[in-house]
Design a protein around this nucleic acid. Structure first.
Length: 539
DNA sequence: GAGCACTGC
């Protein structure tokens, strides 16, 4: 049974393609796909139409492929949908007006507001607090609460509390409340019609994260959050006319992502001809070729696009992105496997490692500087982890004092252990005793070890390279794209020359690189000669 | 001077 297939995530799309393939050998296999009503037919058509391979073999038996749509009545109560008569100029401002209108004019019941991100949510909370002061005494107070993934779980739990009598709860949430988190007692939904969506540009290799209009399917999912306990209302902060222009369904994640991990996984499952794979919706050819190029450059695929052994098949098994997988599998030869294991675990969580309460931003920066390592962010993360694991029972206190997210740090420990088990399965042994001794005499201060780590990172991240300009901004290797060190990086406002980075992302008007480490230009030619033979420019 | 959500045990 494949649930929530209409969300079109990479994993459900891939598994549907695989199941269709498996059904050719296992016609007795019954597959249940649950999805929103609107998309049901698309899934049925996918399973009914014969794939290319099937047609050529002439065994596309229509009876075997028979599929049925079974409709189940939802258990939700009726929901009134209301639209704006004219478009809103500033939807955050509009949100506040609508929240107060609901509070003063509608019956009891909590409110759920969909916004796009943390910044908007913080602004909305502030605006509600301001407006509350002027609220007529005959109305009870509002209890505004934030909800987004970046909050600690303790902070997230508040949204489930029942408000005191006479108080109305207003939850300002990101898309996390659309499907992942369900709050009971919501009677009113305010839908701004936007969501922040990741997209990957195969020409530049840059990901973007931008506010995008939602689909009709998402709009109905959001509205449905109002009718879980009794009839509700959904206020859409756009006109009915703009609603009609929205796309029916979400753009499948496979059509807007870096496909390198997907292709690696398909190859590992024995699907060599990934171009001919029976996708529910085919990804653009540019995404495919960009991913194949990267995997070839990393050595995971040979010149016939076959998975290499053992490198490619091992990379596919590791639950980290291909560039980090390559780094991990190179680490033994650089003599820094224990350290790279930690760095791999920490970078997967790097966004949530540092933690601060309201108004404690300065304190967090001071804490972070305590662990700072001149050579860059990866070594700084390693340093913080090594300090954490030596604290034993005092780990939680240590985190609290140093603005480290305890939950993230314990997760890093478990991810590291998991990655280590993978490597041991490949008979790659991790010598922790040596690393332990080194760390007690502060291995990170050891410049030789640091250089091994930086070289090893270059062997995996040679495609993510930038050079700092005299003005402090960075340029990519081609030279055309201006990149900024993310403010969370040590290289923000510091001098550097060549760096590798973990991630590049465009938000707002700037392109940020995150998790930077200084490298030598010569290492690029040493570890990725073919990749840089063409791309290299004088200087 | 700042990032939506999800996943790996």
């Amino acid at each position: 049974m494949v649930d929530e297939a209409h969300e079109r995530s990479i994993s459900t799309d891939i598994i549907l393609g695989l199941l269709k393939k498996i059904r050719r050998k296992r016609p007795d296999l019954r597959i249940i796909i649950s999805s929103a009503t609107l998309q049901a037919k698309e899934f049925m058509d996918f399973f009914m139409r014969s794939s290319d391979d099937q047609a050529s073999k002439g065994n596309g038996d229509a009876k075997d492929a028979a599929a049925t749509i079974v409709s189940l009545e939802g258990r939700t109560y009726p929901i009134d949908i209301l639209y704006l008569e004219s478009p809103a100029e500033d939807y955050v401002e509009k949100v506040i007006n609508v929240v107060f209108d609901i509070h003063t004019q509608e019956s009891e019941g909590d409110i759920l507001v969909f916004l796009t991100g943390r910044e908007e949510i913080d602004n909305a909370l502030e605006a509600v607090a301001e407006r509350m002061a002027g609220l007529d005494a005959r109305y009870g107070p509002l209890m505004p609460l934030p909800l987004y993934a970046g909050l600690s779980s303790e902070q997230q739990m508040y949204v489930f509390d029942k408000p005191p009598d006479g108080t109305r709860k207003v939850v300002f949430s990101t898309n996390i409340a659309e499907a992942s988190v369900t709050i009971d007692g919501i009677v009113f939904v305010v839908d701004t019609g936007f969501v922040k969506l990741r997209a990957y540009n195969p020409t530049t290799g840059i990901e973007s994260l931008t506010a995008t209009p939602i689909s009709k399917a998402a709009a109905s999912q959001r509205a449905g959050r109002a009718g879980r306990t009794r009839p509700g209302k959904c206020f859409r902060l756009y006109t009915e006319q703009s609603y009609q222009t929205l796309p029916e369904a979400n753009v499948p994640e496979l059509q807007r992502s870096n496909l390198a991990p997907v292709i690696l996984q398909l190859k590992a499952l024995g699907i060599d001809n990934v171009i001919r794979f029976d996708f529910l919706s085919s990804p653009p050819a540019e995404l495919m070729s960009k991913a194949l190029e990267l995997l070839y450059a990393l050595g995971a695929l040979d010149e016939y696009a076959k998975l290499t052994k053992p490198l490619g098949s091992r990379m596919a098994e590791l639950a980290v992105e291909p560039m980090m997988a390559k780094t991990l599998l190179s680490a033994q030869s650089f003599g820094c496997l224990s350290e790279i294991l930690t760095i791999a675990a920490m970078t997967t969580l790097s966004g949530s490692v540092w933690f601060h309460h309201d108004g404690e931003r300065k304190k967090m920066e001071t804490s972070r500087r305590k662990f700072a390592v001149e050579e860059g962010d990866h070594l700084t993360l390693l340093n913080a982890y090594q300090a954490f694991v030596t604290k034993g029972k005092k780990e939680a206190k240590f985190c609290h004092e140093n603005n480290l997210n305890y939950k993230s740090m314990t997760r890093a420990v478990s991810i590291r252990a998991q990655l280590k088990r993978y490597l041991e399965r490949f008979s790659i042994n991790v010598d922790e005793t040596l690393a332990g001794q080194a760390s007690s005499s502060s291995s990170v201060d050891n410049t030789k070890k640091a250089e091994q780590i930086r070289r090893c990172l270059t062997a995996g991240y040679f495609a993510h390279v930038a050079r700092m300009q005299p003005d402090g901004t960075f340029r990519n290797v081609e030279g055309g794209t201006v990149l900024y060190a993310h403010p969370s990086s040590l290289m923000f406002n510091r001098k550097a020359d060549w760096v590798i980075f973990h991630e590049v992302m465009e938000t707002g008007s700037k392109i940020f690189i995150r998790d930077l480490t200084k490298i030598e230009k010569a290492w690029l030619l040493e570890y990725a000669p073919e990749f840089y033979k063409v791309a290299d420019r004088p200087g």
